[in-house]
Design a protein around this nucleic acid. Structure first.
Length: 557
RNA sequence: GGCCGCGUGCCAGAGUGGUCUAAUGGGGCGGAUUGCAAAUCCGCUAUUCGGCGGUUCGAAUCCGCCCGCGGCCUCCA
């Protein structure tokens, strides 16, 4: 059992102790969502895995290798980008052709507007890509906060933790300039259609993360390297840093003309910028600054040898190649004195994709869920969060509606411990709490074994007859990590007679039957009472008598 | 074609050489409680870990082959 946190590092393909540059202040960058649609539960599983890692690092129970245990948690600078620059929809021209996804999203919104299906109170200019991006970004932050995603909560309190790519284009331009100056990038094409490429041959370590070898990429079955986007490239794997395109709906100035950045450069620029700002004890960029003047000194810095710039970098498994591979290449070449020895981040954390009801999630097969769909159906955020984090992050977890129910019950049971009065502790309970602390810690240190940690909680819970203050204390620390009890709860409507579960609305027919049932029960006419319950069942309602003397009404199944 | 991963009971999901005749939650079954339900509590519920071989005193755990599933190599969490 490790006494300190060990994580699987995609770069070394091994579980190894996490080593941070400064163990008391860990830097963590997560690849965030694209905002031309609502995030689905698969997206959230990946973000939430990163969130659990961040919360564990902040926990007072977490110790890093070589560190003396401390009574307070460490500080984690966790930043997650919002990709609000549209990518292209056309796969053929992966380097920049086809319709911009943000433009496509705008079209969808315009259609929804016409059809009258847009949520009430929403009025956005669907032709403005920034407005479309803001619309989906706001919805993402809402959903993420419901799920207790700390970066989103940080962002809400003090904007800056979820940087928008569109606001960092000048930084990207500066990074690209560095790469061009140092010979790691080159530009081709006539004025009006210039393209800047990263020179993959200038970074011998390219392929280290994904295992893809340059020569093999040449003949990739996936068709990544197709003849029609090779124009001007020195090597087929060279990737786009900047594309001049004055007609594009989102465009910025650059030394290579008006256009837009490539898809990998945003993370490099934002991660670097955030880390350096933090070192300068600033959370936000100086306002109204001349970008170049503000950024240049930081961007001119070089990391000694191959020293990592950030401690942790996370993303979905599909991000490993090409995105993270390219990020490593361009970042190390821009910021390391010995680029080929660099890794950009010390530990690369990749989360496997989620399955739904045993199959790949897809809109076509009808097993596609967004978080907000589920909330609208009355699913408790805490239950959804638990269902998404309970399986190990490196297996394809299977999301099921049954599993969601299981989790809702578990959350309820845990919650009762915290909501109880909390009697005075006993030596026995204090010891049980200590056992739980150790088991939970061991499980989390072992590559974030949340499933085992949950098992330990439930075993402990079986011994909790009447919760003591010790029990409550230990569960609170645990929930600081799992975050399922501290999340908002949906509130249902209630009437004199009934408490309606979230997702269920009061209606006169139900109320009438409940009233009749109440009367029947008062008269001890149980046959009539049971008949009314059956009738409600036929209408699709499940009822339960609850402590308040009222009846809890929920939808069946 | 290249690189990588997975396959445990009805479901979800731990366990990676002996204490595993396999944690934990759900489900099912039986009991307590309840007018009946619900909730809660107690008990039972895989001699077995995709298949076949091998290594070993000993394997779900290591090795080989086979079968099945999946990811990346193209935008994707």
């Amino acid at each position: 059992m490790p006494t300190h946190l060990c994580l699987y590092n995609s770069l070394s393909r091994r579980v190894e102790p996490l080593v941070a540059t400064d163990p008391r202040r860990v830097t963590f960058y997560s690849c965030g969502p694209t905002v031309y649609d609502d995030a689905h539960i698969g997206n959230f599983r990946s973000f939430l895995a990163a969130d659990v890692l961040r919360r564990w690092l902040e926990s007072p129970w977490c110790t890093l290798a070589g560190e003396v245990p401390q009574p307070v948690g460490r500080e984690v600078l966790h930043v997650m980008n919002i990709t609000d620059v549209g990518h292209m929809t056309d796969d053929e021209g992966a380097d920049g052709a086809g319709e911009d996804k943000m433009a496509a999203a705008g079209r969808r919104i315009a259609e929804a507007k016409k059809a009258g299906t847009l949520p009430s109170g929403v009025d956005i200019d669907a032709t403005d890509p920034y407005a479309v991006a803001e619309f989906y970004t706001a919805r993402f932050v809402d959903d993420a906060c419901m799920l207790g995603f700390k970066v989103a909560l940080d962002e809400r309190q003090s904007p800056g933790f979820m940087p928008r790519a569109t606001q960092y284009v000048p930084a990207m331009v500066l990074v690209i300039e560095r790469l061009v100056q140092s010979g790691h990038a080159y530009f081709v094409g006539r004025e009006g259609a210039r393209v800047v490429y990263f020179r993959v041959k200038s970074f011998p370590a390219y392929g280290r993360l994904s295992g893809n070898v340059l020569d093999r990429l040449r003949e990739g079955q996936g068709g990544r390297i197709s003849a029609n986007n090779q124009a001007g490239k020195e090597h087929p794997a060279d990737f786009l840093l900047w594309k001049e395109d004055p007609r594009h709906i989102m465009k910025w100035n650059s030394p290579w003309g008006e256009g837009y950045p490539g898809w990998h450069i945003e993370c490099t620029a934002m991660a670097a910028w955030r880390v350096w700002l933090r070192e300068a004890s600033l959370w936000k960029a100086p306002a109204g600054a001349d970008w170049s003047a503000a950024w240049q000194p930081l961007l001119d810095r070089q990391q000694e040898g191959g020293a990592a710039l950030i401690d942790l970098h996370s993303g979905g498994e599909d991000n490993a190649f090409p995105h993270h591979e390219c990020e490593i290449a361009q970042s190390c070449c821009a910021f390391n004195t010995r680029p080929e020895q660099g890794t950009f981040a010390s530990c690369w954390f990749h989360v496997r994709h989620l399955f739904v009801e045993g199959a790949k999630m897809s809109k076509r097969t009808g097993n596609f869920f967004t978080a907000r769909d589920l909330f609208a159906r009355g699913v408790e955020p805490g239950a959804l969060r638990l269902e998404l984090i309970r399986a190990h992050y490196r297996v394809n977890a299977n999301f099921t509606l049954q599993g969601l129910d299981d989790c809702a019950r578990m959350v309820e049971r845990w919650r009762r411990v915290l909501e109880a009065k909390g009697v005075m502790g006993t030596p026995g309970r204090a010891q049980a709490a200590e056992v739980l602390r150790m088991e939970f810690t061991d499980a989390m240190n072992d590559d974030l074994n949340v499933a085992r940690a949950i098992g330990a909680i439930n075993t402990w819970l079986a011994g909790v007859a009447e919760p003591t203050t010790d029990d409550q204390r230990v569960l609170k620390v645990i929930d600081g990590v799992l975050g399922v009890l501290s999340v908002p709860r949906l509130v249902g409507a209630s009437t004199e007679l009934a408490v309606y579960a979230p997702g269920t609305k009061p209606n006169p027919e139900v109320e009438a039957k409940l009233q009749a049932r109440k009367t029947a029960r008062a008269a001890k006419d149980f046959a009539a009472s049971d008949k009314l319950r059956d009738e409600l069942g036929a209408l699709g309602y499940v009822i339960k008598d609850v402590a308040s003397g009222r009846v809890e009404v929920s939808r069946k199944g």
